[in-house]
Structures are given as C-alpha cells and as structure tokens.
C-alpha cells in the first residue's frame, strides 16, 4: 500500500499573501528502539527528510528523527509569489520516498 498523504493550502491566493500549508503523511515512524514479543529488535523505519518546492525553488525543509509521532503532521508558511506547482517530497529509511504535487493559482 502506498503512503497516503494529505495536503491542505488555499488553492487561490493574492500575490504576496502569506499562506499556510499543512501536510500529513501515513507512516509508522518506527523508532528502532522497540522489540517484538519474541525479543527481536524492530528495525528503525522513519521518514528522515521532508522538502517542499515551489516552482522548483525550495521553500521549506525539515529533518525528522526517531520519537516523532506516527503520521507526521507539518504546517508551515510561505509567500504566494506566482502561480505554479508545489511539490512535496518525503524520504526515509528502506528507500521510502513519496511525492505529491498540487497547483496554486496566484492572482
């Protein structure tokens, strides 16, 4: 099952307006510190980086670490500069990679 991502921001904005972008992605964020009932360690499986690009310009980046909640929720702000595409990329352990794109209209 591919990861479900939830992205929320105003689809239309005025030029120069500060907009809030909210993202959430389904991920267990397994810390690597837990063990199974048989005592075997559960390998770490977390998202390690999140990047948001606005027309290929990086506007937000976060490094993620163990002990962060499952399904990490990140909210941040950016300035609506021009119409275009927002690209959201999550990368993590075991080659995890998820990418979402969404259009924004700036008038």
């Amino acid at each position: 099952m591919t990861a479900q991502a939830l992205i929320h921001f105003p689809k239309k904005a005025r030029r120069g307006e500060v907009i809030e972008i909210r993202t959430m992605i389904s991920h267990p964020m397994e810390t690597g510190f837990r063990r199974t009932q048989q005592g075997e360690p559960i390998p770490r499986n977390i998202i390690t980086a999140f990047v948001c690009r606005y027309n290929d310009v990086e506007v937000f980046r976060a490094d993620l670490f163990p002990a962060l909640t499952a399904n990490p929720f990140l909210a941040f702000h950016t300035v609506a500069a021009e119409s275009g595409t927002l690209t959201f990329t999550w990368t993590g352990d075991d080659g995890f990679r998820a990418e979402e794109r969404a259009k924004i209209e700036v008038g």
Partner: peptide, 12 residues
C-alpha cells in the same frame, strides 16, 4: 479533517 490522522485511514 486536515489535522485528524484518521483521515488518512478514511482515504485509504
């Protein structure tokens, strides 16, 4: 809904 993590399960 954009903050409720159960929304991810609903979408799935």
């Amino acid at each position: 809904d954009t903050q409720n993590p159960a929304t991810l399960a609903v979408l799935e």
